[in-house]
Structure formats: C-alpha cells, structure tokens
Design a protein around this nucleic acid. Sequence first.
DNA 1: GTCTATAAAGTGATAGAC
DNA 2: GTCTATCACTTTATAGAC
Lengths: 198, 198
Amino acid sequence: MARVQAKVRREQLIEAAVRVAARDGVAATTTRAVAAEAGASLASVHYCFDSKQELLQEVLISIINELTGNWTTGPEDGAGAAALLRAGLGALWEVVEREPGKQQVTYELTHYALRTEGLEGLARWQYGVYYERSAQQLRDVAARAGVEWALPLPVLTRMLMNMIDGLVLGWLVDRDSELARGALNAFADTLGALTRRP
Amino acid sequence: MARVQAKVRREQLIEAAVRVAARDGVAATTTRAVAAEAGASLASVHYCFDSKQELLQEVLISIINELTGNWTTGPEDGAGAAALLRAGLGALWEVVEREPGKQQVTYELTHYALRTEGLEGLARWQYGVYYERSAQQLRDVAARAGVEWALPLPVLTRMLMNMIDGLVLGWLVDRDSELARGALNAFADTLGALTRRP
DNA sequence: GTCTATAAAGTGATAGAC
DNA sequence: GTCTATCACTTTATAGAC
C-alpha cells in the first residue's frame, strides 16, 4: 500500500469499517476485516487507532453525522403543522429505507456503547444529536405553520424522536414499508393536531 | 455437579444465561460464562444445546415470555380510553424500569438475530408477540371504554408498540424516567383521543 | 450425565525489519 | 508509514475417561 498521511489513512479505515459494519454487522467488524476492506495491513489499523474501541466510536460518529445531516424542511410556508410534519418525516424515511445496514449499525453501536466501560457517553451523545434534530424540526414546523405547540417541547421532542426510532427498528425487523409509512403519517397527523393559535 | 435430567439442566443453563446476559450483555454471554454462572462444566452446555446460537434463542424466548406475560388491564370499566391506556402503559413501564438489563438483552438479541443466518425468524417472532400484545391491549381498551378506534387497528397497533419500543430504548440510554413517563402519558392521551362513539 | 483436557479457529494488539 | 510475523489470549466445540 502506498505511503499515505496517517490522517488520510485513518479516514479510509473509518470508511472501510462503516462498509463492513453496515454489510456484516458490528460483531463481524474485526480489525482484520476492516484492514482487508481498506486494502491495508492489520498493523495499520493499530497504527491509526489506539484500539478497536476508538475505531468503532469513529464509525458511529461518522454515520450519525451523515444520517442526521440533511433533514429537509418540507414544503413552503403556510401549510399546516401536520402537512409539514408529514413532509419532513417522509423525507427522513427515504433516507432510512435507502441504507438499512447503516441504520442497523446505529442500534448495534448504541448497545455496544451502553455495555462498554468508558463508552456510555457515546450513546448519550448519539441520542442527544437525535433529540436536538427533532427539537429543531418541531420549532421549525411551528414557525412555518404559524402555530405554537400545546405541550412542552421536551415532551413532544421525546415523543417524536422515540416514535421515529421505534418505527425504524420495527421496520428493520419485518421490512413492512407500507405499514410503517401508514403509522408514520398517522403519527404526523396526530402530533400536528397538538397545536394552537399563538 | 450432581447428576440431573438433561431437561432440568437445560432450564438451569437458560436461567444462568439470562442472568449473565442481563448483567454483562449478550456479547459477554460466552458458553464459559454461562457454565460458570450455572455452576456447571463447559461441556454440559454443549451437551444440552446443539450450539450457542440455540442457547441464545432460548434466552430470548424465555425473556419475552416473562416480560409480556402480564400486561395488566388497568382500572375498572367505564373509564375513558386515555385513562385506560395510561393505566396499562404505566403498569408496563414499571416492569421496564425494574429490570433494565433484561430490556437491553431483548434489543441486543433482536440485532443478533437479524445478523445471524437462520435466526431472522426469531426477531420477527419477537416483534410478532409484541404486536399481538399491543393489539390485544387496544381491543381491550376500546371494549372497556365503550368506544371504537377511529383508525385501522394495524396502524394504531404499530404506533403504540413502536412508540413503547422507542421510549424504552431512549430511557435505556439516558435513564430519564420523568421525561419518559411524561412522553408516555402524553402519548396515551393522544392515542386515547383517536376514538369515536360506536 | 458429568467431567477434564484439548482441538481448531478466531481475536486484539505488538515487535521489529524496511 | 508500512509491512510480515507472532504473541497472548479467548472463543466454540469435541473426545474420551468416569
């Protein structure tokens, strides 16, 4: 393998690890498998990372940053809260169905982090990002629809985010897209009704 | 170890495996750890089970049967749908908070099953049980409240079950009981409003 | 049915030449 | 920075005596 800056090689290894994890699962993401996927030697993994744990941490950060990057804002202003929520959730759902493997990895790494000493904070960071994005979406919807939420934002944020999380997990198990989208839309309408004129 | 019927020893090993998995995680549930927990030899595990995979399958079946056994029906007839849902969900939540480790195991084994050839059906069975219990709860609530649901039962079932699943997972990450219960109650009220006179 | 001992195949991590 | 070779350890599973 050509001589490359450690920083560059590090990125290559993270991307390789993401591919392996998405395709074969976190349990099968061994340092050897990652090295092979990146076309590098086993030693290069330990040269670029202090430990496998650090590599997996970077994998989660990479996936979360990618998946939560662009939650679209939906249709034009003036629409109702429910319609705006439907549009936003629909866009999010397309991302989910496009790469099921990556979605599975996010859950696998959550549980890995929760069980690994010194990595409990990673799972909390992950869900913190989720909640932040959801809260942002709720504020945006309210502003665009010209309404205010009838319940405390933290409660609504948690309902929204955990509902999505549960729907995704449920879909990963049975891949019933029709039912999942039906529940997603029903939830959007239900949540959208929890508004009042300011 | 005393001479015991294989069937009895099998149950002892499953119970030991449940304890190890709940305490240390599925990844740490090795055949050695289970044997030690049960006070048996390593060979006894392979005598009672064809493979570690079969043991873990039994662990999931055992936990699911235990956890979904008694979803209480809530207060007396005549109450509103929302109140009945709150009562039922509140009782379920107490079970959740009582044994976080076991809850974590249910998720870990879902993902283990989804990634293990020949075990995909186990995850679908698990969630099938969840959905069945949720549907039953919804039918029961409607009957007791003297109302009918305004949306198709499969959609409501999926909303209810996946909402719970997501709330539990979220709670496992940050252990914020107050917020989780707040979202749970808000969801019960929201769902309870989706009814009409028959 | 139970055990000790061991096979056979992994694993993360490191030494040291280049 | 990169590699091969290897260490030290763990894993599932099995053989065979009792």
